[in-house]
């Protein structure tokens, strides 16, 4: 495992993504709310480009005390990204599948050295 230079943080806008290839690995690098996240770009469902689909706030359904629904809302804290092939949805911070958190995309560590961003791969 070696640190691979991806780019400069100052050139990486918030909400922007980069799909990079390191050796045989294809990796999606996200910048979300100032933090960097990197995941394998191969969807666990059927190998689609998991990191290239829609990014969307998580849809939540709060319940009242009597367990009736308060309707569907967007979460103000959690963001997901969706595989464009069949809609497998993953959590931006953990790479875990929304419906089954045991299923996780391979996560790559990010190292920041000043303005430089590295992926450990």
């Amino acid at each position: 495992m070696a640190e691979q230079f991806v780019g400069k943080a100052s050139e990486f806008k918030d909400g922007e993504r980069q799909i990079i290839r390191i050796g045989e690995d294809e990796i999606g690098v996200f910048r979300h709310q100032g933090e960097f996240y990197a995941y394998s770009n191969f969807c666990l469902h059927q190998g689609g480009p998991a990191c290239e689909g829609l990014t969307i706030a998580r849809v939540i359904e709060p319940l009242r005390e009597d367990k009736t629904s308060m309707g569907l809302h967007f979460s103000e804290t959690d963001m997901n990204f969706v595989c464009p092939w069949h809609g497998y949805e993953y959590d931006m911070k953990t790479g875990a599948h929304i419906a089954d958190p045991r299923v996780k995309l391979r996560k790559y560590d990010i190292v920041r050295k000043g303005d430089e961003v590295y992926v450990v791969a």
Binding site: Q4, F5, V6, G7, K13, D14, G15, E16, R17, Q18, I19, I20, R21, I22, G23, E26, E52, V119, A121
Partner: peptide, 11 residues
């Protein structure tokens, strides 16, 4: 291995 930027998806 070299890092190859395949795509850049804007915000």
């Amino acid at each position: 291995p070299k890092v190859e930027v395949l795509r850049r998806i804007p915000a």
